[in-house]
């Protein structure tokens, strides 16, 4: 191994001029990567800074002037949370997202278990139908389901029920796909041995498959949580009462009322971002694993 590396590794630069040439040669790489980092950071930093600036300052000067005259306040956050209804919407977002994450986790892992480890007729066909459903756009469901919910007299469109049910249903194809592909990689001997020992399917699912699949289930859970938390469209369609609408919907309404009140809009935008950022930064490992598993199987 070491011998192989020795023959292929680039010789270390020996003279001063070689070393200089190498540093200069890398110069453009550092410069371009630095520029890229700036382009990706500055827009978000601008909005973050604005959310902490007094709104009078926001109206008179650009956010970049804080470098010369730093003046900060939390008044914008206080105002959007208290009087613009974003505080209530924050709770609605949680109330929409938590059941819409737990339900598909449970239902998809059950279905994925059956597709991976229970024998029944047309199993492969069922799985291919699920693969096909991955591509079906949510839009094909909107009109019949909204009509159905409205006419059912159950009030589901105004009490979270419709949002929970539809988010759960549309999360299943991806969840079943991801988890089934993980479940079939579990050691067959282990499951067959449990079966010979008389374990039931429910027992195998609970005591072997679920505990061994925590990374995959966590990845799917994070995806689904972020997806629902960040979603606007589904709530626009299925949460038809002000008091149950999540932050994404509330912020678009704020945008209609205060199109240039950047102090308020920026604070609201960051309140939407805060939970995903915490989830993402603390659970990044699972997130990237899931991403790799989901798209490059």
């Amino acid at each position: 191994m070491t011998a192989m590396q020795d023959t292929t590794a680039k010789p270390e630069p020996r003279t001063f001029s070689e070393r200089l040439a190498r540093i200069v040669g890398r110069g453009p790489t550092h410069l371009i990567l630095g520029l890229i980092a700036l382009v990706w950071l500055v827009p978000s930093i601008g909005l973050l800074v604005t959310s902490f600036r007094p709104s009078a300052d926001m109206r008179s000067t650009g956010w970049w002037t804080v470098l010369f005259e730093p003046r900060f306040t939390t008044a914008n956050y206080e105002r959007v949370l208290a009087s613009e209804g974003i505080g209530e919407a924050f709770l609605n977002s949680l109330f929409i997202t938590i059941p819409s994450t737990i339900l598909p986790l449970l239902i998809a892992s059950m279905a994925a278990f059956a597709l991976a480890w229970v024998r029944f007729p047309f199993r492969d066909t069922v799985f291919l139908v699920i693969v096909a459903m991955l591509m079906v756009p949510v839009q094909v469901g909107f009109i019949p389901t909204v009509t159905g919910f409205r006419e059912s007299g159950t009030g589901l469109l105004t009490n979270y029920g419709a949002v929970w049910l539809t988010h759960t249903a549309w999360a299943l194809p991806f969840g079943i796909f991801l988890l089934r592909n993980f479940f079939i990689t579990l050691p067959k001997d282990l499951i067959e041995a449990a079966r010979i020992d008389g374990a039931s399917n429910v027992g195998i699912f609970r005591t072997i498959v679920l505990p061994l699949s925590v990374p995959a289930i966590a990845a799917y859970g994070i995806f689904q949580f972020l997806w629902v938390w960040n979603d606007l469209l589904m709530s626009l369609i299925y949460a038809q009462r002000n008091a149950i609408q999540p932050m994404t919907v509330k912020v678009t309404q704020l945008l209609g009322t205060y199109a240039t009140e950047w102090s308020l809009l920026s604070a609201a935008a960051f309140l939407i971002m805060i939970v995903p950022l915490i989830v993402f930064i603390s659970l990044q490992r699972f997130f990237v694993q899931g991403l790799l598993a989901g798209s490059v199987k």
Binding site: M110, A111, V118, R119, P121, F122, R123, D124, I176, S200
Partner: peptide, 16 residues
């Protein structure tokens, strides 16, 4: 795979 009907499959796949 897939010889005969399976109650377990129905139970696990039913909700989805």
């Amino acid at each position: 795979p897939g010889h005969g009907f399976s109650w377990a499959a129905l139970l696990f796949l039913g909700p989805a």
